[in-house]
Structures are given as structure tokens and as C-alpha cells.
Amino acid sequence: MKLLVTTSPHIRSSLSLHKVMYTVILCLLPALFWGVYYFHIRALFLLITCSLSTVVTEVIFKKVRRKPVSIGDGSALLTGVLLAMVLPPYLPLWMAALGGFIAISLGKEVFGGLGYNIFNPALLGRAFLMASFPVQLTTWGIPARASWVSVDAITQATPLATTLPKFSGNGIYPLQKLLFGLHPGSMGEVFSIGLIVGGLILIALRIADFRIPLAAILTLTILSSVFYFTGKNYPSPAFHLLAGGFLLGAFFMATDPVTTPYTKKGRWVFGVGMGALIVFIRLFGGYPEGVMYSILIMNSFTPLINRLTRPLPLGGKK
């Protein structure tokens, strides 16, 4: 008989915290490499800036609060890497550094450090930047010259901003471009294949739970099919899955054990809510992309979901 006991955060394997963090970063590497290759050296600068900023901020906070410096666990580094992956590649670097600072300070340390934060720190950092610098955060581009060290860009809109009917798009976009990461977008979000491979490895290693990504993918597919087949000019479910930050969000951000539910049922609820919010924000909201806000909104529901889906102890009463 196979006995699987979950509920409450039990450690399910011999993996320690720093091993988990570094494995997640390893799984992000395919998408990262492609991002740096495709957007040239500026993407590398962005990655270094964000990582440095988050790590340094964490050290400062731990020192000021006289707590042991826990940089070795890699969580600050992971936050920095994720933040760089969701930012436009040509963002001014000081803004990226500010985002990293906010992600760690307001996103994590003010709540008491790792394990106590309500929101995904990387996304909170991005949300702060989005509210502060809406113009820079929605300016996308592709490299201007073929040279690998080129830092200039040609401004270009993302597939979501050109394809959605609310921006008078016709809902059609070449899917292979999305699949192989040949379009403007956030540094780490463009290369769909890399994200899918990395995400599946993460699930196979049992570091990420399959329930939230699966629920989100199913909900997104079903809901966007409804619109695709009934409405005019709505993009196809495949476009919804591959465009924007959905894959990165579903595999790497909605599986963060701290800010998502720990009950099985709760994880399904989280995934469904996230998928539905993304479709509605993309199709009817003011912004082209809704992954960040969907995850942040669902993060804020996580304590409630945990409470409502907590299994009763044997013989317990409601």
C-alpha cells in the first residue's frame, strides 16, 4: 500500500532548502540562456543587477536586524533571477536595482524573512516598478544590431499588445515565434520550450507540485476556448498558453511553497483562480498582461484558501 501523508508543511524528501533553491535556478537556466542570447548583453546586465541588488539588500537587512546572514540558502538570489526574468530587457538598470531592493525589503524582510511573506517577492518588486514607472515597464524591444554586445534596441510591442482584440488586434499570431522565443517580451518569459522543459523537470523532481500548474493550464485552456469559439477575434488557447508570462508564472511562481496553499484541494483552487483571472485581465482588463496581478491576487487569498480547505482530523467536527 502506498501511503502519502501531506497537510502541514512536511518535508517530503531529503532535499534541503538551499538544494531546492539552486535546483529551481538550474531549471530556469534554459530560458535564461535564451534570454541573454536573444536580447544580447543588456539582458545579462539586467540579470546581474537584479541578483546583486536582492542579495545585497538581504545582507543589509539581516545585519541591521542582527540575524544570521542566510545568503547561502539562495532564496534572495532566486528572487533576483526571477525578477530579472519578468522585466523588460531594456529597462534602465537603476530601476531594476530599485525593484530588487523593494522585492526583498517590502516583499520579504518586513514580514520577518523567508517563510513569512504573503506575496511572491519577485512579483511584488515588479508590481512596485509597474506602478512607479508604467512607461518604462511597458516599453519592449528587440536588439537593434546583430552584434552580441549591442545595447541599443528597436522598440516593439509584445504579442499580447498587438494580438488582443481590445487593442484592435485580430487574435492571430504565429505560434512558432512564441514557442521558440522570437518576439519582444520580458527577458525570461519569451522562450516557451525552455520554460516547459524546466517546469516539467521541477515537477518530476517533486520540488514543484503539479496541481497548481495543471489547474491553471486547464482553466486557461477551457476558458480561453470558450471565448475563442464564441467571440470574434479572440486569440486561441495555444496563444494564451505561450504568450506573456504564463508559463514562467504557472511553473515557477505559482509553485512557490511559501505564498501558495499547502493543502491539495487548496492548490487546485489557487490554480483555477489564477487561470481564470489571467483570461479575464487579458481579454477585458486595462493591461495587456495579467499573470503578475493574478498571482499576487491569489497570493492574498492563500491564507483563506488554506483555512477553508484544511482537512479535518479524524473524528473532528466542522
Binding site: 534602465p92 530601476m95 517590502l106 512596485f128 506602478a131 512607479s132 514607472f133 508604467p134 518604462q136
Partner: peptide
């Protein structure tokens, strides 16, 4: 300097 729009908005007051 690029102004931080969020600081001019209500969330900036809370922050």
C-alpha cells in the same frame, strides 16, 4: 530622475 508615480498615488502614502 524618473518620478516614481506610485509615490504620488494613494499606495505611495501607505508605503
Amino acid at each position: 530622475f524618473t518620478p516614481w508615480v506610485i509615490m504620488a498615488l494613494p499606495p505611495g502614502a501607505f508605503l
